[in-house]
Design a protein around this nucleic acid. Structure first.
Lengths: 217, 217
DNA sequence: ATCAAGTCTGAAACTTGTTCTACATTAGCG
DNA sequence: CGCTAATGTAGAACAAGTTTCAGACTTGAT
């Protein structure tokens, strides 16, 4: 019936971006701000739709018009925060020797940033992994953002090989998982660091697209 | 306050296993069976506590005495299913050349098994990553099981080095994440396979512990 | 067999995500 | 301007996870 294996093709209605008026963009901003604030105080469960609506001075129905579910709301919040983070990261590029080291460095920096508001991070990360098919487009967006951050750290503007893209995906998975594991108190910071460094070695095992200099083992 | 960084120490009350009577074990079995059955039909959302209670002929309050939340229930179900799976896998060990190949082979086999009941897999996997601190002991149990499966595939009975353990954790994260991503329709089977194979290379980059071939403790 | 403690049951209540309804406001347009 | 469709509002209603409670049933020890 609706098994997976519908081969990942989910355009949905992201492309349909009806231009928002000023007041609407303002409302949206207020909502995301209220969400982040509530999340900072008490994580996922403190983000209650009625509270968000009240804090952002918007009716519950309106909140649902902007974000069709709590998960959508939190994934959008993650998108928002990641954008900020990506900007920050750009300003001080990693200085590792190999691409793998640079990626590890960048991810640990990102990790540090999220650590500063652990409850917000928890809310966003849990929403992200709890998301079902109906949130796929939005989750994909976040995923593309993460990919962009990693590719930035690798540095080369070249197209990556399939092997390298696979490595990037694996790194992404690992990054999110370790984050969640740490947030749930099931892993120490040392383990997180070790795992990030471990997985980032995969980058140095893959060649960049021909014509570029890369450092194999 | 209760930030993470309480340095991952979660004994909780798993050690306190009050011996169950026969009828109790029977009830528990019925509950897990009903859960799996409902999950097979409609995934996470079809597992409704009232339904589970009714299907397993147990009062709602009793269900909650056995499993303090829906997430606990589904994580326990995963534990149950993994036990079964581990048994199956043991019977036909992987035949790859390198440890990494064997691990990849085993994980793809496990993946195949879960694919057969995608909705059940979805329910269990989502519960697992959605779990918060209150479920840490149970999630850890599942994690240990997965680790055991991977170590089995590696084959050596030797203690693994820290580097290798880190690799195993990374593989675990990747395995779960790809599963979820596939279940949500955001990745193709080919990508799953590529990512599993990619991450399993990490195993062949790490040496097994020198000399000793016995279990300490 | 009996009693106390612990378990189970059925049903209602409570919480929070989500939906719906009836009405007010706004924005774009002829 | 004045209309109309879309958007926003307040609040009730609904759904499913979780809690609570009074009373019946088991169990284990005496």
């Amino acid at each position: 019936m609706d098994d997976p294996e519908a081969e990942a093709a989910v355009p949905e209605r992201l492309p349909t971006a009806p231009p928002l008026t000023e007041r609407q963009r303002e409302r949206r901003r207020r909502i995301l701000h209220a969400t982040a604030q509530l999340a900072c105080r008490g994580g996922f469960e403190a983000v209650q739709m009625r509270e968000v609506a009240e804090s952002s001075q918007v009716a519950l129905g309106t909140l649902y018009r902007y974000f069709p579910s709590k998960v959508h709301l939190l994934v959008a919040t993650m998108h928002d925060q990641l954008e900020r983070l990506h900007g920050t990261l750009r300003k001080s590029p990693p200085d590792g020797e190999t691409a793998g080291e640079r990626v590890a460095q960048t991810l640990m920096r990102a990790f540090g940033a999220l650590q500063r508001e652990p409850r917000l991070a928890e809310a966003m990360a849990r929403a992200l992994t709890f998301a079902d098919r109906s949130v796929s487009p939005e989750v994909d967006q976040v995923s593309r953002q993460t990919t962009a951050i990693i590719l930035d750290a690798i540095g080369g503007l070249e197209d990556a090989t399939a092997a390298r893209l696979s490595a990037v995906r694996v790194i992404e998975h690992t990054w999110l998982s370790t984050l969640i594991t740490w947030l749930a108190g099931r892993a120490s910071l040392a383990q997180v660091r070790a795992d990030i460094e471990t997985v980032c070695r995969l980058i140095d095992l893959t060649e960049a697209e021909p014509g570029r200099a890369a450092a194999p083992v």
